[in-house]
Design a binder for these strands. Structure first.
Length: 235
RNA sequence: AGUAUCG
């Protein structure tokens, strides 16, 4: 049984979701772990809709759902923008207790972000005692996804004032919002600040936003100057 | 044995 789940996980990570699905259908008994592995496979391959379909099916079966599987369903909600399911899972996690809500808070915020409901996301953030950087990043990314430059930068400033060092995920969201609104100056400032002040090595996401930003501004000379530096980076 | 934050 545990070997089956592991094998399913390998199919999910290395193969396609169809292969994982095929293997999953041969299982005679479904438990929480194998179900989670299957849901995770759907989510990672951008099949959030199929994940939610499977979730609806297992609700009629009598499977004990834990926090981990609910997190996977929430990721599916984020992909598909299913607000009503997000709210339902939110309620279940609140009922499960403080520590459950705390460990699921980042995924919940991310889900509400995907549903374009940052009011709900903010409500979660506000009830968490001493939120960590991951939670700040989730909020920042949510605002960035809505194209809300003001809320994004406000969150970024608050995060720093609280005493956190922005990490590569933080700057990834900042550069994304700069690219979204076309703020070339702030984008380049953030990029240099990231590498110089915070000693963060830019990855493909960061370069992607910067190239997009400069490209839209028609500044192809700067893009060309960056290309040699980008190619040296490994993923 | 299965999950966090980067549209």
């Amino acid at each position: 049984p545990s070997i089956c789940s592991s094998l399913l996980n390998v199919y999910a990570k290395c193969g396609s979701f169809e292969e994982a699905e095929e293997l999953f259908n041969t299982f005679t008994e479904r438990n929480v772990v194998s179900l989670t592995a299957m849901l995770s496979a759907y989510v990672e391959h951008g099949q959030g809709k199929k994940a939610l379909q499977l979730y609806n099916v297992i609700q009629d079966e009598h499977v004990m759902l834990d926090v981990v599987i609910l997190l996977c369903v929430l990721q599916a909600c984020s992909e598909t923008g299913s607000l009503q399911t997000s709210e339902k899972l939110h309620f279940e996690l609140v009922s499960a207790g403080h520590d459950c809500l705390r460990s699921a808070a980042a995924t919940l915020i991310h889900a509400y972000g995907g549903c374009a409901s940052m009011a709900n996301a903010q409500a979660i953030f506000d009830v968490i005692f001493e939120p960590n950087l991951v939670l700040w990043n989730a909020c920042l990314a949510g605002h960035a996804g809505e194209g809300n430059i003001f809320a994004s930068l406000q969150t970024f400033e608050m995060l720093r004032l609280t005493g956190f060092e922005p990490d590569e995920v933080t700057f990834s969201a900042v550069l994304a919002i700069c690219s979204y609104v076309g703020d070339v100056l702030l984008g380049l400032q953030s990029f240099t600040s990231m590498t110089y002040d915070n000693s963060i090595y830019p990855d493909r996401r960061h370069y992607g936003s910067i190239v997009d930003l400069l490209g839209r501004a028609g500044n192809f000379n700067r893009v060309e100057n960056m290309l040699p530096r980008i190619s040296v980076q490994a993923d």
